[in-house]
């Protein structure tokens, strides 16, 4: 169904007539699509997307995170047990994070992680039959941005997965436009959690609310909304 690309499909729809690509005859099915025998079924309600040469998937509004290998997520440390931390990443199962998976950590030199802390980490193992596993280092053993997020003055918003994907896409200029006017730090987890920190709590609240409310807006609308927010901030 090459025609329904960009249109709404609902669970149970059967898709056919995929666009043939020059390079390969195979079609790659992304989230929301499943092959049942000869047919391709839709398993999520949303908009059918296509990317050259042969990738199909469904964009939908969802809040439950399904771990995928290599994605960056923000987790909340819930339990310290033995040599691992249990971290809530919004998936069905808690993820594990070894205390050795931090920069410069050794058996003797444990990282300072407390229950309730936020960690920005990468998914090392994401398998539907196994517990997800997180790491806070890259393959070279450096932190490269991962690690415990300090709890001084930042705030985290819980949003839908769709919004996170939108924010991270190069077409969306909310972070660029917002950052030009209100300087802030941010960490965006693919599990629908966005941590922001600006100079003052007031600015942080403004940034967090601007991001959270931008889900169904176009770039032009986002600019208007941010302009209005800034007017209010400066006391117009």
């Amino acid at each position: 169904m090459a025609d329904s690309v960009g249109k709404v499909v609902i669970p149970g729809d059967i898709l056919s007539e995929f666009r043939a690509s020059e390079k390969t005859s195979k079609v790659a099915l992304g989230p929301g699509l499943r092959q049942e025998g000869e047919e391709v079924l839709v398993t999520k309600g949303g908009i059918l997307r296509h990317k050259e040469p042969n990738l199909y998937w469904i964009d939908c509004h969802q809040r439950r995170y399904i771990p995928a290998k290599g994605e960056d997520v923000i987790g909340i440390v819930t339990v310290k047990s033995g040599d691992v931390y249990r971290v809530d990443i919004g998936a069905t199962q808690p993820a594990t994070l070894s205390y050795l998976a931090f920069e410069g950590a050794t058996k003797r030199n444990r990282p300072n992680v407390k229950v309730g802390d936020l960690v920005f980490a990468k998914l090392l193992v994401a398998n539907k039959d196994m517990e997800p596993e997180l790491v806070c280092i890259d393959s070279g053993g450096h932190s490269s941005g991962y690690g415990v997020i300090p709890a001084d003055g930042g705030f985290m918003v819980h949003t839908s997965l769709n919004l996170v994907r939108k924010i991270l896409s190069p077409n969306c200029d909310i972070l660029k436009f917002l950052g030009k006017n209100v300087p802030f730090e941010t960490a965006v987890g693919m599990n629908g959690r966005i941590w922001v920190k600006a100079k003052t709590p007031k600015d942080t609240i403004v940034v967090a609310n601007a991001i959270a409310s931008s889900e169904h807006m176009t770039n032009a609308q986002i600019r208007t909304m941010i302009r209005q927010l800034l007017d209010k901030l400066s006391g117009f």
Partner: peptide, 19 residues
């Protein structure tokens, strides 16, 4: 979903700032 200390502290701090 558990509440992180980060969120907790921030909300309390904002309330102390009357926000």
């Amino acid at each position: 979903v558990p509440m992180s200390t980060c969120e907790r502290e921030f909300i309390l701090k904002a309330i102390r700032d009357r926000k």
